[in-house]
Nucleic acid binder design. Structure first.
Lengths: 221, 221
DNA sequence: CATCAATACAAGATATCACTTGAATAGTTG
DNA sequence: CAACTATTCAAGTGATATCTTGTATTGATG
């Protein structure tokens, strides 16, 4: 009999998965990888950390079975191990959003105040898209749009949005979406479009949640 | 501007929820609380830790918003903050089961080998219950049965099972269930019943998962 | 109010974690 | 094969986590 019981060892192993997500930097990594695979260097830039540190975080995620990697030339691309990981990350966010008061404050600080702006739900968007009532903008970087996007969306990355804004209809409703509920792109886009007098709101989820919920997408196969 | 960015602080806060589940002992606590509320002392016994240590783990879970407590006399009862926490725990187990090879080995060590014994799925059980083909045993401690159980189940706690076994039909299929997929009670029960020549299998989920999936239960309101 | 039981809090030892820095490895390109 | 790029590995430091032991707090009870 080992010094730790079999039960303790089993639950330690189960908990190791949660522990891997229990670092803000690794959570950021998973949030980005939910959009598609990335090289170590790209991830390091996204989470504002050194490449060495990012590599070590990836090793932790890999050991916990949350990510897989493939080598291409002298780069290594990481991706989430399966859809269950994205669902796990969504479950973490759901509990944090409901249960950690601090999250609301910090979200406002990062995303900016959403003064009375209601987000659009997936259900509402789906209905209004079907009736052609809405212009849907994917404000993520263009490569992410190319990898997969909500059916009917138009790519409008933030840097290009200023130019695009002039050509948007002033009468129709505009909905912007990005990576997820805690992604800043859609909020920035909505603020910018509203400052120009356009009727813009953000979708309350991002592309990964939309896809996993089974709503229509256009994606590379 | 603080030394950490707003984005880092937000993801730290989100990750704090995962971190709270990232200890084997706290995972055990959540697994037990998924059955219903418990006092600190009861929890300490379940996870084989000192009361002081258990209390500190509960403080961590409480700060992360995963549990709530109520005082009754000089005891304090803890419970999961909401169903989302149970779903989060299920998501952790799902990823761990699929992705961490170690979990399979450790599970066998704790639960015992399941030599070729297929577990019964919730769908199959529901069908066969409806046709009256099966005897369903809840092998958790009796108070947990009283707090809520699968509709049609009969309480058969492990200590009482030996006595009960003689009265069980030898022709009909017997299904045992307990707290969850990594709970040892049902496995022990099935081994015991099969040793007596009975046709027994375990349900592949526990009561909490059955209830959250919306299958019929009998519970105190 | 004194005593007891259950829980929480505090202090301390050991281990683990996150990040830094510098070196090693694998693959590509001239 | 030398030079270069992307990644990994290793060592070191300060911070944090877990568990122990001892004490304080809170509510119940005689």
């Amino acid at each position: 009999m080992p010094s730790t019981t079999a039960k303790a060892a089993l639950f330690d192993a189960l908990a190791s998965v949660a522990q891997a997500l229990g670092s803000g930097r690794r959570a950021e990594i998973v949030d980005v990888l939910d959009q598609g695979e990335r090289s170590v260097e790209e991830l390091a830039a996204e989470i504002a950390q050194s490449v060495a540190n990012t590599s070590q975080h990836l090793r932790v995620l890999s050991r916990a079975g949350l990510v897989r990697s493939r080598r291409a030339g002298n780069r290594v691309f990481y991706r989430l191990a399966d859809d269950g990981v994205g669902e796990l990350w969504a479950a973490v966010r759901a509990v944090a959003t409901r249960r950690v008061a601090e999250v609301g404050v910090l979200a406002d600080e990062y995303l900016g105040e959403r003064g009375g702006m209601e987000a659009v739900s997936a259900e509402e968007l789906e209905e209004r898209l079907a009736r052609g009532e809405v212009v849907l903008l994917d404000v993520r970087p263009e490569p992410e749009f190319r990898a997969g996007h909500i059916a009917g969306a138009r790519s409008a990355p933030l840097p290009a949005l200023d130019e695009l804004a002039g050509g948007l209809p002033r009468r129709r409703a505009i909905v912007a979406y990005c990576r997820g509920p805690y992604c800043v792109f859609a909020d920035d886009a909505v603020r910018m479009l509203r400052a120009r007098g356009l009727n813009a709101r953000r979708l309350d989820v991002g592309y990964p949640e939309w896809r996993r919920a089974g709503w229509p997408v256009e994606a590379v196969t």
